[in-house]
């Protein structure tokens, strides 16, 4: 028996909104420690990794490890029907060929129940090595969203360069060029609005803005996002998910392969 109940059901809604257009089908791996998912987009340029700790749920029971393969667009479509204040419960028997989703509006005496068919997916699982990144940038997630959105009006790719004097995001296209320079913020009065930049070694790398705009759909999950970069390796864009007490209950990490000069 598998059962996971999330009182803040909007977290599940937001996670699905953040991955459904990037990955069409994927498997959730459920164990006593929590639920996780790893999948590449169809063109194999990016990888998304989601983790939700068992502690992050209000009730969590997993008697046996389960792999729940499903169409994420269908799941997102159903979960979209849940209200933002709804409690969401996911249930599956051990030999599941479907899962049950239960939505309970907090103030009402109603229960909405949906069943979703499961799929057998032969998904490739990638081993991601521990990496000491040369550059780590923490910035407000809405700022990152805006940088990606605005620069994609000009060009298809962004060049991120980080050196002692700060980080620059730049792009060029047919109509011209644009760039955004970020400096570390001085005070920690508003941690959500802070920009912190750690540079071990300067880097300059280019990435497709199309994917970064996809990743920015996770903005509602966290006020801050981190970008980790090293020469010639994929960029990591991480949104850490917190509960009401500000404890970490999971994350969405997106990995994006760099563009290289031919």
């Amino acid at each position: 028996m598998f059962e996971a109940r999330m009182v803040r059901g909007f977290i599940i809604k937001r996670i699905l909104e953040a991955i459904k257009d990037l990955v069409s089908e994927a498997s959730w791996d459920c164990s006593t420690s929590g639920m996780s998912l790893q999948a590449m987009d169809t063109s194999h340029v990016s990888l998304v990794s989601v983790s939700l700790k068992a502690d992050g749920f209000d009730k969590y029971r997993c008697d046996r490890n389960l792999t729940l393969g499903m169409n994420l667009a269908s799941l997102a479509q159903i979960v979209k029907a849940a209200g933002n204040d709804d409690v969401i419960t996911i249930k599956a028997p051990d030999d599941a060929d479907k899962i049950t989703l239960i939505f309970e509006p907090k103030s009402e005496t109603e229960t909405w129940e949906y069943e979703i068919k499961l799929m057998n997916l032969d998904s490739e699982y990638l081993g991601i090595p521990e990496t000491d990144y040369s550059v780590k940038i923490n910035l407000p997630s809405h700022k990152f969203q805006r940088i990606c959105r605005d620069l994609s009006q000009i060009g298809d790719s962004v060049t991120i360069s980080a050196a002692k004097d700060g980080v620059r995001f730049s792009t060029t296209g047919d109509l011209g060029s644009g760039n955004v320079k970020l400096n570390q913020t001085a005070s920690a009065d508003k941690p959500d609005e802070a920009v912190t930049i750690k540079i071990e070694e300067p880097i300059i790398l280019s990435f497709a803005l199309k994917y970064l705009n996809h990743f920015a759909r996770a903005t509602a999950l966290s006020p801050q996002v981190s970008l980790s970069l090293s020469k010639d390796v994929p960029l990591v864009v991480e949104y850490v998910i917190h509960d009401d007490d500000d404890d970490e209950i999971g994350y969405i990490r997106y990995y994006l392969a760099p563009k290289i000069e031919e």
Partner: peptide, 14 residues
Amino acid sequence: KSSQTRIDSFFKVL
């Protein structure tokens, strides 16, 4: 001219 690399060329398939 830059070209897009693939993510599975960086990480090993398990």
